[in-house]
Design a protein around this nucleic acid. Sequence first.
DNA 1: GTGTTTGCAAAGTGTTTGCAATTTA
DNA 2: TAAATTGCAAACACTTTGCAAACAC
Lengths: 138, 138
Amino acid sequence: MLRSSPYAAERLRAAGLRLTRPRLALAGLLFSNGDRHVTAEQLFDEAVKTKILVSLATVYNVLHQFTEAGLLREVIVEPERSYFDTHVEPHHHFFCEANGILQDISGEDVTIKGLPAPPPGTEIDSVEVIVRVRASRA
Amino acid sequence: MLRSSPYAAERLRAAGLRLTRPRLALAGLLFSNGDRHVTAEQLFDEAVKTKILVSLATVYNVLHQFTEAGLLREVIVEPERSYFDTHVEPHHHFFCEANGILQDISGEDVTIKGLPAPPPGTEIDSVEVIVRVRASRA
DNA sequence: GTGTTTGCAAAGTGTTTGCAATTTA
DNA sequence: TAAATTGCAAACACTTTGCAAACAC
């Protein structure tokens, strides 16, 4: 039983992942509507609402499989929850703790100057800017 | 029973915190040796080694009390652990996941250009750069 | 003395895992 | 059919909490 957007199937195949019902369904939710930032729980709830039968454990598994396959990127902004971002190119984020909303900042527009060399014996893996915001009391 | 470095006592008093044995002992560990980045578990282990009797729960409580009092700053770089930084001024970090080591990057040397305005209705709380590094295969 | 803080153990939260049953290719 | 994946429930790691006893001021 393999039915979903052909686009999702495409991406999974390209990433070398088998086309299973949960993967196709979740890929459909994730990749059909522009850039998204979701937690496992959010995606699970969405799946349930959309009448997709998946277990929460599978949502976690799939999120990690997608991340390893380069289809997602994990964003760490809260100690108690992981966010997954469908935008995998280097870029930055606004994060509002009050409502848990992450928002992309294009990586190309931002320049960072004055970074020292990484500690001896290490090399830079990624550079990420997190701009924490709060509701303005205006 | 209140014995510890007078410096620690000083800071606690200034922050409006009662001078309790656990607080004084942990403040001694935290603030006597320049800037530090610790997890609750690390600080607890250190306390145990130093023959300081504190429960892990109290270490958590104290870390949060110190954070609220402005003596520490929480740094979020891993989903499964919180780090606490004795350096509370705005600054940035190198982080090596392989060994869990955080290292300060002075905030003054770094300039970030091209950040867009924060989302409508919000204002910037903090801007933090996290440079993830890995052991170089040199 | 009064209100705060501690420590313990239990509860909580988000996440991972073991394994039999199912499904993909 | 062989190998991979799923779902469930149990296990996990880290953190928080409830509450009686201990302590600071």
